Simulated scan of single mutants.
Amino acid sequence: MDEFQKEIDERTNLTSSNMFEMLLFRLGGVTADDPGELFGINVFKIREIVPMIPVTKAAGTEPPILGMVNIRGQIISVIDLSAIAGCVTKNGPNILLITEYARRTQAFAVESVEEIVRLDWSKVMSAESNNGGDIVTSIARLDSDAESGGGRLVQVLDVEQILNMIAPVETSMTVTTEKTAKPVIRPGSVVLAADDSKVARALIEQGLTDLGIPFIMGKTGKETWLQLLQLAAEAEREGKTIKDKVAMVLTDIEMPEMDGFTLTRNIKGDERFKSLPVVIHSSLSGSANEDHVKTAGANGYVAKFAVDELALAIQNALA
């Protein structure tokens, strides 16, 4: 029991060191005899892994939805990731990954599960700058250091994009009550936002536009951190403070190069920036992740994709 608790604590403490654990799995290849490429998913998003069980296909169900399964009394939709990725499996999907994204539970059907690896986010590259597909958010480099450039490559799926393909999210963000006015920020200042998911960026961009708030959007925590440093240098040259340039920071947690926890700690640990409001907007839902948010020093946490809650969190942070 002590070893089990130690393992849980070690996994939890990864969030304080820009590291995470990723489950590797395969979806099949171009042909049935091709083992195919490795894919990955953050372990924090996996509730459990179970062998394939009978799937009930409801009337009107269309690919990539295979149907529904009953997991201990909970009815869960099953999504065929191989079909989405255009892969051919040798024996069909054999494993179900029961996952939690943005307060939603779903099962992803995969061909096989390989192993769990521990990675630093600095070894994860944005797929958008490396010819990744529409459903791949980043590429992780395994078994090598950053200088050698060798090792296996793992495609990290943009699950938020996949779920949006199946059930599009609402992107219009409105003021939550008639008594609450749209937030007002200092003239010349902006909201810095960071998210590696295309669908999340589209939601944030549309939402901030609806609220009349200017913004600068980044794809990684590192990109947003460098942008903040640049704006701080501009403010110093102009005899201003950082709040004359930046109203708040809105960040995802899982991002290539630098995660949202590290970005938040960098901001809150710097005398120039610690008074800036930071709101974390993540599909990593659950009380454990909300505790990590508090530990990192963020001013608020919103689970994707609750647009009304996000609008309220932005309003509160800017009040």
Rank of each mutant, 00 (worst) to 15 (best):
N131I: 06
L231K: 11
A193K: 02
H281N: 11
I8C: 02
S138I: 06
I253D: 03
E115V: 00
I280T: 00
S282G: 00
N13V: 01
T209A: 07
N94C: 14
P256R: 01
A313F: 07
D195Q: 11
L153K: 07
L276E: 06
A247Y: 09
S17W: 03
N18A: 13
K268L: 02
L38M: 14
I76W: 11
T251E: 09
V279A: 03
E234I: 05
M125K: 08
V124W: 06
G221C: 06
E62M: 14
K219G: 15
L208G: 08
L203C: 12
S285N: 05
Q161G: 09
E3S: 05
E254S: 10
D145H: 01
R26D: 09
N42V: 05
V88H: 05
K245S: 10
I65N: 00
V249Y: 05
D259F: 06
V184Q: 12
L66A: 14
E114N: 13
A58E: 13
S148R: 02
W225D: 08
Q230V: 06
A235M: 04
V293R: 01
P183K: 05
T31L: 09
P35I: 10
G73L: 15
A202S: 13
R104I: 15
G29S: 11
A193W: 01
M217S: 15
F20L: 13
S129F: 01
G221F: 05
V246D: 09
L203A: 15
N18H: 07
D145R: 01
A288G: 02
F261D: 06
S77E: 08
A200C: 13
G86M: 14
A232S: 13
M258T: 04
L142G: 06
F215R: 02
G207W: 04
A233S: 12
T31N: 08
K123M: 15
I139L: 15
L66Y: 11
V307G: 03
